[in-house]
């Protein structure tokens, strides 16, 4: 009983929820890209649109789970604490695009993604203290 309670407490840690949210967001985007990334010549072939639509709906739903997890995490901890962690989704999406979708990633793209991830992390420290209204 105690083990179950502990596991539940661990799983509802906001940090883990943010990471899970980033994983769902990444999976959603990869599914979307995979579904839309079909040979344009075969577009219009019988049944093709339905397959694409199904993939898009699945991708959006998986992405939606990520959004719900993010909202739940934010309700438990300050957004300024969780935000830098959320920027790992950029890294996850690019790594997944490379390994699952075979997209080539050149040096400038890595530099750009690194700068952006750092910048988004830094936004937190630049945020003014919440003023009581």
């Amino acid at each position: 009983m105690i083990v179950i309670t502990r596991m539940r407490t661990a799983l509802t840690r906001p940090e883990l929820m943010v990471i899970a949210s980033a994983l769902f967001a990444t999976a959603g985007q990869v599914i979307l890209k995979y579904s839309l990334h079909r040979d344009p010549a075969s577009f219009g072939a019988h049944g093709q649109e339905l397959t694409v639509l199904r993939g898009v709906l699945l991708g959006l739903s998986v992405y939606g789970i990520g959004t719900v997890l993010w909202l739940l995490a934010v309700s438990k901890r300050e957004i300024s604490y969780l935000y830098p962690l959320a920027s790992i989704s950029y890294l996850l999406v690019v790594l997944s695009a490379h390994f699952f979708l075979n997209e080539p990633i050149h040096a400038d793209r890595w530099v750009g993604i690194g700068l952006m991830t750092l910048g988004i992390g830094l936004l937190t420290y630049g945020a003014p203290e919440e003023q009581p209204r």
């Binding site: 050149h106 750009g112 700068l115």
Partner: peptide
Amino acid sequence: EPISRLHWVAVLMIGAGAACIARSG
């Protein structure tokens, strides 16, 4: 809304990152 100087630095970094990605073709 008030925006701190550090916040603007972060925004510049994000802009520079986007420029690098755009350059990557």
